[in-house]
Nucleic acid binder design. Structure first.
Lengths: 147, 147
DNA sequence: TCCTTATTGATAATAATTATCATTATCAGT
DNA sequence: ACTGATAATGATAATTATTATCAATAAGGA
């Protein structure tokens, strides 16, 4: 994110905090600046570590509390990568797409018939990345939990 | 997974273990049975908890070791859901797809121009789910890390 | 069946997250 | 600009999850 974009995002976020009755404090601003200025998705610990290099560092608890608030407001989201673990499931050949019920956690594996390949090629050309894997996951409520 | 499918999967897995020089032990079999028989993606702790109800329960360390082995063999994979955290990123309107470099962690947000909506409708009709969110993430190596 | 050694389970060590609470700082209302 | 009510902080204790250690055990080839 470019510096001017960071500034803009922070202003938007500050408005959102005030609209929801939250105060804009120095620690919160620091967390938000670190997130908005980062090239990579950061963990809570990484955000805390970065703050240690600033003239006035954060308490680790404030990092967690601020992240919780920002997520509740829908201003940030969590990014998941291979390596961290939320659940274990057998690998089935050719089945890469998962459908997960938010309520009961039940999961279904669905056949992949979206034209992802063409999309991947376009992305590679556009970004210079070499893409070697992808995840497509759907979240919602299953038939049982809806009724 | 149906009981007969579980049996089938376990046999396949056992072959894979032996082919790679791993022994098939009672604890490993228990972990595999629990995973294969489950309707939902389980965490290591949940697998351990389920084993406590069995006549001979698992050591928690064996659960982690078995999962590590199964993943190395490509027999299981990790499923990620909203709520667990691997990294934090600002939410940008209409930008739901992420491209992540395995090496440096750099992330790019890419415009979503895949026809996901039609796919979602088909999934809903097919499964009875109400889908309210989805994640499409691509993993690979960025231009810089490739060279 | 025996023997080699991979594997286990108990537990200690480490790391990450959440809870507690006295002190501090925000900001609405003068 | 000042004040006061109270939201928020930081230090740290408590909890939880994961990894490392090592003597005892058990898998499976000879």
């Amino acid at each position: 994110m470019t510096p001017s974009n960071v500034e803009q995002v922070l202003n938007t976020w500050q408005d959102s905090l005030h609209q929801h009755g939250y105060r804009m404090t120095r620690p919160r601003r620091q967390v938000m600046e670190i997130i908005a200025a980062s090239e990579t998705a950061l963990t809570p610990q990484e955000i805390y570590q970065k703050s240690l290099e600033l003239e006035r560092s954060l308490g680790i608890a404030s990092v967690y509390r601020t992240l919780e608030m920002l997520e509740e407001l829908g201003l940030i989201q969590q990014i998941h990568q291979p390596g961290g673990c939320h659940g274990i499931w057998p690998t089935l050949e050719g089945h890469k797409h998962h459908l997960i019920c938010r309520d009961c956690g039940q999961m279904q594996v669905i056949e992949g018939n979206v034209d992802i390949d063409g999309y991947i090629t376009a992305i590679e050309k556009q970004t210079g990345y070499r893409v070697d894997d992808h995840w497509l996951q759907f979240f919602g409520r299953c038939d049982g939990c809806l009724n």
